[in-house]
Design a protein around this nucleic acid. Sequence first.
DNA 1: TGTTATTTGCAAGAGACTTGCAATAATGTG
DNA 2: CACATTATTGCAAGTCTCTTGCAAATAACA
Lengths: 140, 140
Amino acid sequence: MLESTIRKGLRATGRRMTRTRKAVLALLECTHQPLSASEIFTQLQEDHVAIDLVTVYRTVNVLKELGLVVQLDLFQEGQSRYELKEGRKHHHHIRCQICGRIVDLLLCPLKKITRLIEERTQFVVGDHTLEFTGFCPQCQ
Amino acid sequence: MLESTIRKGLRATGRRMTRTRKAVLALLECTHQPLSASEIFTQLQEDHVAIDLVTVYRTVNVLKELGLVVQLDLFQEGQSRYELKEGRKHHHHIRCQICGRIVDLLLCPLKKITRLIEERTQFVVGDHTLEFTGFCPQCQ
DNA sequence: TGTTATTTGCAAGAGACTTGCAATAATGTG
DNA sequence: CACATTATTGCAAGTCTCTTGCAAATAACA
């Protein structure tokens, strides 16, 4: 996404475009895997971007609030991952239990299910998580 | 489940039936919500059962290894919950965002989806999580 | 009842994430 | 462009969930 557009989004909520926010956005933009905070931290260090892990956490939270980034909680990983939204459709993931690779599943089969659940439970369904684990072609 | 059956399962792996294991099992048996370790701890304290939080963690892990208990990681809760398996079918949950109440969804709509994912990704699919949040009838 | 190995409680540690605060840097104004 | 203002950063320390080490307690079984 255009930096100026993001800058406007930040300004609209009284925030500023900073060196570190640019760096995190750029990293998420060129990475095709959802990254954890510590992975973002490590990768930026390798890229010689000075940033603190605390700032990574604060940055992904801001980007999440702005709706630029989605937070994923994958199956028993014990940490969150973040990926750029960038106009992408809501989707789910499968993670290889061996190598940890995460692949997007370009579908969400839950629309009918959601309606069924609302009928049966009388809940108003908000959000859902659906994540798979398994063995990828290389690790089988 | 019968205590003697569980005792046999424990013995078969060189383990023992203890006061604390009985207490955790009994609590899970009479509770109709998946409980977190700290909830188990607090509830047992109120019931005047002397137990350490560490022992709760160790106990639920043993019961999980024996296949007596299922570990749930609900949507962005930051803690695991445990519920008795007791011959119950695989199922999912919905949690109220306001009051935290958890309701069982007595269905799993993912068999066809799993096959579709295996075809498309060439993964061998192992496990999955599917959890919903929303607003329960009382909190709407 | 006694022997032995498992289990427990306590203290301490690990890992993910948050908060307080002073120093730093982005903004937009003159 | 320089300045004043206010958000942001880095550091230290704290929180929370969960794990590990170890000596003392207890279950199992002869």
